[in-house]
Design a protein around this nucleic acid. Structure first.
Lengths: 198, 198, 198, 198
DNA sequence: AATGAATGAGAGTTCATTCAT
DNA sequence: TATGAATGAACTCTCATTCAT
């Protein structure tokens, strides 16, 4: 019979992890309300009580996914702060690399991203925190003379988040562009603008 | 007898309109799933069967709100196409005016906007259509030499939508900025970029 | 078809009252936990949601029955306080009459009594309140010289409640004795004791 | 290897006894339905399957506790039958001693008593058997001339059980009175009554 | 003697929706 | 035009109980 149908004797952690993965996919695909516990457990090949062995309720597993997303995205972005002694000519590349990291993370964790960035009640809050981190970066870059002091970093950081969000959905998740490409495009656009000699 | 038993001062159309308004507020505040028909009718001071007198079901009234948003935003944006004989130096102002129109519409219809732009399953599609309209504008502006041909209008239009979306939530709906201000800021930023002499 | 099967159009209060009656019987017969909402509604010929139209949940309907019992038994006993100008030789009859009232009430509301006096978590409390009322009566009777001051009214009132409780179950509810008979017996026993000339 | 993997110091009988004790406490405190097997085993520091090693199911362990109570209370009361050659003047003391024995047993086995005397479905039956034993005693005492033949021993025995029951809960279990005190009080009251010269 | 992991069976509750009037 | 009353159809969650080791 081999592995097929193995149920008894599976390690608890395995079941838990499986449920998390499956739930992420279901939530990402159908949203919180249309996703039923019965769907999740069916997909994970366990029964409903098993679900409650590992998670308090439907909210709890969703929350765990959201928290996981939040933790990871913040860990990621915290590390991308520019060093203050960086050479001016390298700034764009550095920024671009930071953006690429975000896009890459989103790309490799699309279910989690859909959940934490687009469906959770806390999505707004998460985006705002991300914007705030970006703003902090921008502020210190202004201080270091990389950007003009007239730059409204508050507004700009929000715009950047909006751009990231939109490109993630329309280009990244559609497979139309690589993380690196998107990052480069974004940087170029924002650094030099679209204008010319008006 | 006529008026006997009629809800005081409520013609059929009035009830219907009231339900739509109330529903918009409820949906915008609590989302589709957490909004119960019983909440809507309570707030509108009618009974549940009355609701079904005017709307086929919960989806239908939501859809009607979404459609209304979609229609109005497209009517609005369709009109803001730049004329091809516009003087170069006026382009920024024109673009800015178009943006301001959108922000104003969002601001004056925040419930509807929340529903159609942020909660509906079709929100994605609506944004994409908005992006497409913007792209069409951009393309013709490139053709007219306002912008460099190297501009990736596809990507840029998505970024603009992302920026609009984010600023709407974080600045406009919070009352931090007027539609006009936001429009001007955005245009300046995108036209000239944030960069300097790298 | 006549009345048979009439469902739509029944008055709400009727349904509610019916549910209360049926629930009382079910609870009294099977206890709180073994009584299922599905049993109650089946017996009342309505569906489960109808139950929730009138009661918040299973606890609530049980509580309502308990409260009803509590209110009625207290109203009843409050009225049976002896007047202070009563003639000594009439005291036994008066007391007997008061007891008979209680037994009669229990007899005519046996389901409610089983619930409020024997099954509810508050049964203890209810009995204690009943005992307290009896004690108050006894105290004033001691003061008026009907009873010896050496009487421990506290203990005695509890004993009376115990006697009432037990006779209700073993004699009254079994139909072995009438309320009046039980009352008379009890009074005789407690007034004169069982002893003789030890 | 022997001891390997064995729960430290726990022989089978020990685990079983522990489970019984813990279960008694849980049942006595929370009642049958609110007591979960998971609670019992948690408190006893064993796992659920271990529980089923010693007891067939939830009912079985509860029943065992009830039976234990029943056996012991009957053994106890059987022994307290008055000898027929006892001197009249000693009868009250003898009766008092019998009552004190019961109260003492209840006091020392309060969990068991709560279960067997107040919560079990058989509680009624147990009380009735106790009443019957008391009645037998009373009957023979009537026969021996200790009590008047007019005494309704059937009713009286039930009243005694009711008194015992109530005092157990309100005085004994509250620590307000010792078993002996309660016994003496009860005997005095029932022998001589509360009355005077009506 | 003991356990980690799992489940069968069902209970309560909710909500959109519809009769009958 | 409107409503009081009722329901079909789910869905989440719980608990006693058992397998495989």
């Amino acid at each position: 019979m081999g592995q097929r149908g193995r149920k008894k004797g599976a390690s608890g952690e395995e079941s838990r992890a499986l449920l998390l993965t499956v739930a992420a996919k279901e939530f990402a695909t159908h949203g919180f309300y249309k996703t039923k516990i019965s769907d999740i457990v069916k997909e994970a090949n366990v029964t409903q009580p098993t679900f409650y062995l590992y998670f308090q309720n439907k909210e709890a597993i969703f929350q765990e996914l959201v928290d996981s997303f939040r933790d990871r995205i913040f860990t990621l972005t915290k590390s991308s702060k520019l060093d203050s002694d960086i050479a001016s000519e390298n700034v764009p590349d550095k920024i671009s690399a930071g953006l690429a990291n975000i896009f890459t993370f989103f790309n490799e964790n699309s279910d989690l991203t859909r959940i934490g960035f687009f469906m959770a009640p806390e999505s707004e809050e998460i985006k705002r925190q991300l914007a705030w981190q970006i703003k902090m970066n921008l502020d210190s870059e202004v201080e270091n003379g990389y950007f003009l002091p007239s730059l409204d970093t508050n507004l700009f950081s929000e715009i950047l988040v909006g751009a990231i969000e939109r490109l993630t959905i329309t280009h990244l998740f559609q497979g139309k562009d690589t993380p690196e490409n998107l990052a480069v495009h974004m940087v170029r656009l924002f650094l030099y603008g679209v204008g010319r000699d008006y």
